[in-house]
Amino acid sequence: MDTSLLFSGFIFGLSIGSIYFLMAIGLSLCFGLMRVISLDQLLYYSVGAYIAYSVSLATGSFGLGLIAAVAVGGVVSLAIERMVFRRIYERDLTFSMITSFGVLLGGVGVIKFFWGLVPRPVPLPFSAQVDLLGTDVPAYRLLVVAVAAAVYIGIWLFLNRTVTGKAIRAGIESVEHVEGLGINVARLFTTTFVIAGTLSALAGALHAPLIMVDPHMGLEVLAFVFMVVIIGGLGSIKGTLVSAFIVGQVVSIGSLIYAPLAQVAPFVIMLLILLVKPTGLYGSALLKK
């Protein structure tokens, strides 16, 4: 196969993987700390994309759209945390999964109400091509990868260098012990949830110019995001990074070989990994509820 084609496929995979990573990391943190599966992250993804669409359409600046998307994503996830999740942390996983699906479904309804059913295109903020190792690569895709890398570094620093981050890591091991030290876990939960919601909105806004925004876009990435989380292992940040990379590459390289493979190949990879390790690559068997 043509190397330049393969290389641009690699970059394509990296950018897709970056989007998945941004979403999966929030899901993974929420699971690790609060033991909830927050399907509504997919709503913040759609909300982010729609806000980016509307704001960049109104102001002509995609940068503003991006900022607005992140802000709105944060506010919406804060509201949902306060109104819904606060009441269900104590319950088992099934409960959070169904409730958050209700939130997701309702949110899709609200999006349909405001923006209608028609898919909307978001123009690329810049269509420049960058020459990388002799291959022309869309600069925007590189930006997406750079943002994801920055977020990874930011999250890493947050978790390892700030005391709140350390409390989150400690809470992933045992919430009860963190509480026993006098640390306000309710606030810790809210912080984590809003970080997750914000990152999902960022992912949606970044993804918007690469696809069309439509009310069901959250449901379309759902399977891939969850495959990333499952392959990496629920609750593991490092696992999420590795598996986002794998899934991105499998989707991209798979589609180069045979287009429909892009959708099915990651699933097969996931099954194979689960066959060997039922808790994912970096998932700990200890995390039980």
Partner: peptide, 27 residues
Amino acid sequence: VKYVPQDKKVFSDLTVRENLELGSYAT
């Protein structure tokens, strides 16, 4: 009023220093 549980579960992924930092965090 502080509770010291019996399970001897320190935060194993954190260093001793970080464990103590969390003890200091609240106050």
